[in-house]
């Protein structure tokens, strides 16, 4: 175990980065998912087509490829824009944190698009009609009837999307984000102990995913008290 001495704080900061990526990408993933679902449910043919292409493309390509393309693609784009103003500039560095976070949010957001769309369509239309017949406004019906029914439907797949995000964080090490897997690679070059170093990474990720799983289970239990016979 003493091979790990001196690496603990690096792992700790690596884990902090994992947490940061997770929180940022979770917010963006929800945003992309809601926009995608809204577009698919809208009356606009164009919006439907764009959202359809979005889900087909990002559910059908390897995640690591999306991360690489977005990282290098945005670097090339930003460099050529910068060169318009200053031809001396050779290369603009894109922060791997943001390139990676946005990439995995887009990818998992394409799955969330289907989840949110399904949850919207899964709400019992009878509930909505009952609310309207009682004189509730469209907004009141949305807030008090549709959303509470929707999140119960969306929660189980949404839990899986959160697990995907946390695991995809490790992929961002490929573009130089110093999260735990990146730390492990450095430690291996110094110590020559790959198995030990990777096991630590595994334990950290398992810790994160366990917390997520337990949280989803707790929320599900709260939501299900109304749908499971609790006599």
């Amino acid at each position: 175990m003493e091979v790990l001495t001196g690496w603990w704080d690096d792992y700790f900061w690596g884990a902090v980065i994992v947490a940061k990526v997770f929180i940022a990408s979770l917010s963006l993933m929800i945003l992309f998912g809601l926009i995608g679902a809204g577009a698919k449910l809208s009356n606009s043919r164009v919006a439907q087509k764009i959202a359809g292409a979005y889900t087909v493309i990002f559910r059908g390509t390897p995640e690591i490829l999306v991360i690489l393309l977005l990282y290098f693609g945005s670097a090339i784009l930003l460099t050529s824009i910068a060169q318009i103003f200053n031809p001396e500039i050779k290369f603009v560095d894109v922060p791997p944190f943001w390139a990676g976070t946005i990439a995995i949010s887009i990818i998992v957001g394409s799955y969330a698009t289907e989840t949110f769309r399904g949850a919207f369509l899964g709400v019992n239309p009878g509930s909505i009609e009952a609310a309207r017949a009682l004189g509730m406004s469209t907004l009141q019906t949305f807030i008090y009837i549709r959303i509470p029914e929707m999140w119960r439907i969306a929660l189980p797949p949404f839990g899986n999307h959160m697990l995907s995000l946390i695991k995809d964080t490790a992929l961002i090490s490929i573009i130089g984000l110093n999260e735990t897997l990146f730390v492990a690679k450095q430690a291996i070059t110094v110590t020559g102990k790959p198995f030990t170093m990777y096991i630590v990474v595994g334990a950290i990720y398992l810790g994160f995913s366990s917390v997520i799983t337990l949280a989803v289970m707790a929320i599900e239990k709260f939501g299900n008290r109304t749908t499971i016979d609790a006599k």
Binding site: N124, E129, A130, A133, L134, S137, P148, E149, T226, T227
Partner: peptide, 20 residues
């Protein structure tokens, strides 16, 4: 809205709000 305040409705499939 004014009419819906005056008119109640009962459906074949009850349509209670399941989460309340």
């Amino acid at each position: 809205d004014a009419v819906r305040r005056e008119v109640g409705m009962v459906f074949q499939s009850f349509n209670l709000f399941p989460h309340m």
